[in-house]
C-alpha cells in the first residue's frame, strides 16, 4: 500500500500540488485522473522520487520514501517498476535485453533463470516473437508491452504507469488496460495509473483519484462515479468533456 500525506510540490514560485492525501491499495488498479496540466505526472514523479516534494510524506508500506536515507531509497526503488509516457525503452538494447536489464543490474538469478524470467515476462504481456528486435523496429503498442514486461521483471511490488494508453488505438488501449488489471491482480501489485482515458476509468477504475488543479477533488470507486457527478461539477465537466 502507498499512502500520501499532505504532499506539496511547487516549481519556482508556482505551486502544482496542494496537500495531496491519498491511499493506493495493492491488487487493484488505482487510477489518477484529471485534466491536462492538473498535476498528474508531477504527482507520479514525486511518488517515484524523480521530484522531491517540499513537504509531506510518501509511505511505501510504512517506509517514508521522502525522508529515507539514499541507500534505503534505492532499496525501495528496486521494488518499483514504471511505465513511462514515452516508454523510455533503452534503444541501444533489444527487446529481451531491455527486459533483462533490471535483472542483470539487481537480480540474483543465473543466466538460465534470467532467460526463463525474460521469456515469462514477455509471454505474460503477449510478446513471444520479438526478442531480438530493437525498440525502433516494433509498434507503439508493442513498445508499451515491452515497457510493462521490463517494469515487472524484478517481481515488482509497485507499478506506476503514466498514460499507458496515449497514442494507442482503442483496441490496443483496451488490451493494455486489461493487461495492467490482470497483472495487478495476479501478482498483488500496488498499481498507480495516470489516465486521460475515460473508458479506462469505467473499465478498470476500482479506485479513482480525481485531481483538479493540483488538489485531490474526489476519491472513490467507478460505480460511484455517476452518483458523484450530479453534485460535483468539476468531475462532471471532466467526464462530459470526454463525451460520455
Amino acid at each position: 500500500m502507498i499512502e500520501l500525506v499532505n504532499v506539496n510540490k511547487s516549481f519556482a514560485d508556482k505551486q502544482v500540488l496542494f496537500d495531496i492525501n491519498a491511499k493506493f491499495e495493492p491488487g487493484i488498479p488505482n487510477l489518477i485522473i484529471g485534466a491536462s496540466g492538473s498535476g498528474k505526472s508531477v504527482l507520479l514523479k514525486c511518488m517515484v522520487g524523480l521530484f522531491k516534494p517540499e513537504s509531506g510524506s510518501i509511505n511505501y508500506d510504512g517506509r517514508d520514501f521522502v525522508h529515507l536515507p539514499y541507500k534505503q531509497v534505492r532499496e525501495v526503488r528496486r521494488e518499483i517498476g514504471m511505465l513511462f509516457q514515452a516508454n523510455a525503452l533503452f534503444d541501444s538494447l533489444t527487446v529481451e535485453e531491455n527486459v533483462d536489464f533490471p535483472l542483470k543490474m539487481f537480480g540474483k538469478l543465473t543466466p538460465d533463470e534470467c532467460k526463463d524470467r525474460i521469456n515469462f515476462c514477455l509471454s505474460r504481456v503477449g510478446l513471444e516473437n520479438a526478442n531480438k528486435k530493437y525498440p525502433a523496429e516494433i509498434s507503439g503498442g508493442m513498445k508499451k508491452r515491452v515497457g510493462i514486461a521490463r517494469a515487472i521483471a524484478l517481481e515488482t511490488r509497485y507499478l506506476f504507469c503514466d498514460e499507458p494508453n496515449s497514442g494507442l488505438d482503442p483496441i490496443n488501449s483496451r488490451r493494455i488496460d486489461k493487461l495492467l488489471h490482470d497483472i495487478t491482480n495476479e501478482f498483488k501489485i500496488t498499481t498507480v495509473i495516470n489516465s486521460h482515458d475515460i473508458k479506462t476509468v469505467y473499465d478498470i477504475g476500482e479506485s479513482i483519484t480525481f485531481i483538479y488543479r493540483g488538489k485531490v477533488w474526489w476519491q472513490g470507486h467507478r460505480n460511484d462515479l455517476d452518483n458523484t457527478r450530479a453534485h460535483n461539477p468539476e468531475l462532471d465537466a471532466f467526464i462530459r468533456a470526454s463525451q460520455f
Binding site: L50, R77, N87, A88, D91
Partner: peptide, 17 residues
C-alpha cells in the same frame, strides 16, 4: 541527451541506478 529527453535517464533513476 537523447536518453534524457526520451526519459531513459529517468527510467534508470527509478530503477535505483
Amino acid at each position: 541527451g537523447n536518453m534524457r529527453v526520451t526519459e531513459q535517464i529517468d527510467a534508470l533513476e527509478v530503477m535505483g541506478i
